[in-house]
Simulated assay, not measured.
Amino acid sequence: MAFSDYIIYVDESGDHSLTAIDPNYPVFVLAFCIFHKRYYSETVVSALQKFKFKHFGHDIVVLHERDIRKEKGDFNIFRSVTERHAFMDELTTLIDESNFILIACVIDKPAFKTRGEVAVDNPYHYALRYGLEQLAGFIDEKGQSDRDTHVIVECRGKKEDRDLELEFRRICDGANGLNRELPFVVEFASKQVNSSGLQLSDLVARPIGLRVLRPEQQNRAFDILTRKFYCEGGRQHVGEGYEGVGLKRLPD
């Protein structure tokens, strides 16, 4: 089978545990960033490298949202609040100017846990199924359903990765709401791998969770993402019609 013109990077915000739920962030977010391969390789990767060269002098630093937010490791570089804000503004602009399609699933863990009619053992797997179903619709629209499309996820541990791979294959073999095989291939990447796509998916996941938790709070990053969510009616309806399509909140 030939390879599709698209590549998908997946990252999460929050953890999928239903036993120890953080009251300050009781959600789990799984974000899927879809890139056209030619555009990704020619534009996104070079833009992110230029950003790193400017701020760090090299391009081997890996952008992690949590480390940036807490100013840890490579991100303990800001000499003032003004300097930090300038860094964040430039990074936000980079995301804004990068063309990708976004699909995200946000799970309210306390509500999900108490909803007895669904299998609540692993919110990650539940979110994965929704994401893959929506991705299938996108791939169908682009006429790529007869080709393999790779889905890149970060390694999380041997058992977790094994369980995820089994669930991924089960969904793609037909255990999905579409009742058909899906043309996706999962690939696992080390947390240390310097993948532009994985870094961008990491950066977009938390703003989505924060908007669901605190919708009245100012959230410039999410405002930008509304123009990237997969939506009904094609790209002429950018910024509207994405609820329940490009952005799914569970339980319903």
Rank of each mutant, 00 (worst) to 15 (best):
F3T: 05
F3I: 10
S4E: 01
D5Q: 14
S13P: 03
S13L: 10
H16K: 14
T19V: 08
T19I: 06
N24R: 13
N24C: 05
Y25R: 12
Y25G: 10
P26H: 01
V29P: 00
L30C: 11
A31Q: 08
H36E: 15
K37L: 07
R38F: 08
S41T: 03
S41D: 11
S41M: 02
E42Y: 08
T43I: 15
S46G: 01
A47D: 15
Q49K: 15
F51C: 02
F51G: 02
K52P: 02
K54D: 06
H55M: 02
H58C: 08
D59F: 00
V61T: 12
H64C: 10
H64D: 14
H64Q: 11
I68S: 13
D74V: 01
F75T: 04
F75W: 01
N76L: 14
I77A: 00
F78V: 13
R79N: 14
V81R: 09
V81I: 04
T82A: 13
H85Y: 03
H85G: 03
F87P: 03
D89H: 11
T92H: 09
T93V: 14
L94P: 09
L94W: 08
I95H: 04
I95S: 07
D96R: 13
D96S: 10
D96F: 07
E97S: 05
E97H: 03
E97Q: 12
N99W: 02
I101P: 00
V106F: 09
K109P: 07
R115C: 09
G116C: 08
E117N: 15
E117Q: 14
V118T: 11
V120Y: 13
V120D: 03
D121R: 14
D121L: 10
P123T: 10
Y124C: 10
H125G: 12
H125T: 05
Y126D: 11
A127G: 14
R129T: 09
G131I: 11
E133I: 06
E133P: 01
L135S: 05
G137M: 04
I139C: 08
D140W: 11
G143C: 08
Q144R: 02
S145H: 09
D146H: 11
R147W: 03
T149D: 07
I152T: 00
R156V: 06
R156S: 01
G157L: 06
K159S: 04
K159Q: 09
R162H: 08
D163E: 15
D163F: 02
F168H: 14
G174H: 05
A175V: 07
A175C: 04
N176S: 07
L178A: 11
L178C: 11
L182E: 10
L182M: 15
F184I: 10
V185Q: 13
V185P: 02
V186Y: 03
E187I: 08
E187G: 02
F188W: 02
A189Y: 00
K191D: 02
Q192L: 06
Q192P: 00
Q192I: 00
N194W: 08
S196M: 01
G197N: 00
L198M: 10
L200K: 05
D202C: 01
I208L: 03
I208N: 05
R211L: 07
L213W: 02
L213G: 00
R214H: 12
P215L: 04
A221M: 13
A221K: 10
D223R: 05
I224Y: 01
R227M: 12
F229I: 12
C231D: 05
H237Y: 15
E240A: 15
E240N: 09
G244I: 06
G244Y: 04
G246W: 08
L247P: 04
L250T: 02
D252H: 12
